[in-house]
């Protein structure tokens, strides 16, 4: 109960960073002072007149309808414009589309795996230890978010391109990076770099090191601490970071556009395939590929909503146990 009276500001920040809402899934005891305000249970001084409420709700729904819902519906309507059979043919009969799907299914998990290893390591170092340059490191981890994907792609071209710093040498050794899958993997990893780390750092900070310190005292080995103490605590947050990272990795366009060379049947990923089909005035096929990625986005959102609840729940059971 203690925690109710003085909610740690850390959690708010953690949730703000993850985009989660603070709304409690369990019924809140209204008698508890400073209980998080449940929606609709506002005090009288906070109530707006009914006409204001109605107008604002309608406006909000209208904006969301036009900006978000209508586009999603439109994707599926256009994808199925020629019927489900044609839809299936677009996706399975075109060898270049098939290759793009396979390439995306290879690149995205690989990039996510790399960024997950990094994310766990970075979160451990940053949330569990004090060292000089810690704040700078946090800022640098966020850097890829504010760099244009096109500029990220350009950076790799400057290293690995024919006129790049390493280009001639690589050519001599017959190693192909640019306009090939390694560059696509690098560019995708660059753009999705911060996701897992950003999710885990505030989470680990909030949980605190007490349990791990106890494990050390009891003689646990490092991998035992990670496997039996840290991982169970962060598993939902970790999964949350991974699915967000995956959604972005599968959809990355700008950076991959620059480094892939867009060779049909070789270096086209699914988003690039959408562009190419669109350029070829093959709109239904383009929308068919787009609908697969839209479905991925919707599934990601559903899983994300579910995981957010899990993260909050596990944090709460933790607190009650203390």
């Amino acid at each position: 109960m203690e925690t109710r009276f003085a909610p740690p500001p850390k959690k708010e920040r953690a949730m703000a960073a993850s985009g989660a809402t603070l709304e409690s899934p369990k019924p809140v005891d209204p008698a508890a002072p400073n209980a998080p305000a449940a929606v609709g249970k506002l005090r009288r001084g906070q109530q707006d007149p009914t006409w204001v409420r109605t107008t604002l709700i309608l406006l909000a729904v209208a904006f969301m309808g036009i900006l978000v819902v209508l586009p999603v519906v439109n994707v599926f309507v256009q994808a199925f414009a020629n019927g489900p059979e044609a839809y299936w043919r677009y996706l399975t009969q075109d060898p270049e589309t098939r290759h793009a799907v396979m390439l995306t299914l290879f690149i995205a998990p690989a990039a996510v795996a790399m960024n997950t290893v990094f994310g766990v390591a970075a979160a451990w170092a940053i949330a569990r230890f004090e060292f000089r340059g810690r704040t700078l490191l946090i800022t640098l981890i966020d850097l890829p978010f504010s760099v244009s994907p096109v500029v990220a792609g350009l950076a790799f071209v400057l290293w690995f391109g024919m006129q790049g710093f390493l280009g001639p040498q690589l050519r001599e050794w017959d190693i192909k990076i640019l306009f090939s899958w390694p560059a696509i993997l690098l560019a995708t990893s660059f753009v999705t770099f911060p996701f897992v780390a950003r999710e885990l750092i505030p989470l680990l900070e909030e949980i605190g090191p007490d349990e791990e310190l106890a494990a050390v005292t009891l003689g646990a080995k490092p991998w035992q601490i990670f496997w039996y103490v840290t991982l169970p605590n962060i598993k939902w947050g970790l999964l949350y970071g991974i699915i967000l990272c995956n959604a972005r990795a599968m959809g990355e366009f700008g950076a991959v556009y620059v480094v892939s060379g867009r060779i049909a049947g070789q270096t086209d990923t699914m988003p690039l395939r959408i562009d190419k089909l669109f350029q070829e005035y093959n709109s239904p096929a383009s929308f068919a590929v787009a609908s697969v990625l839209t479905l991925l986005a919707l599934v990601t959102l559903a899983v994300k909503t579910y995981l957010e609840r899990k993260v909050i729940e596990s944090a709460e059971t933790k607190k009650e146990a203390v």
Binding site: V72, V75, G251, I274, F287, A290, L293, T294, T300
Partner: peptide, 11 residues
């Protein structure tokens, strides 16, 4: 956030 930007542009 979750929808690929290419899809957004296309639609």
């Amino acid at each position: 956030f979750a929808l690929p930007t290419a899809v957004a542009g296309l639609v």
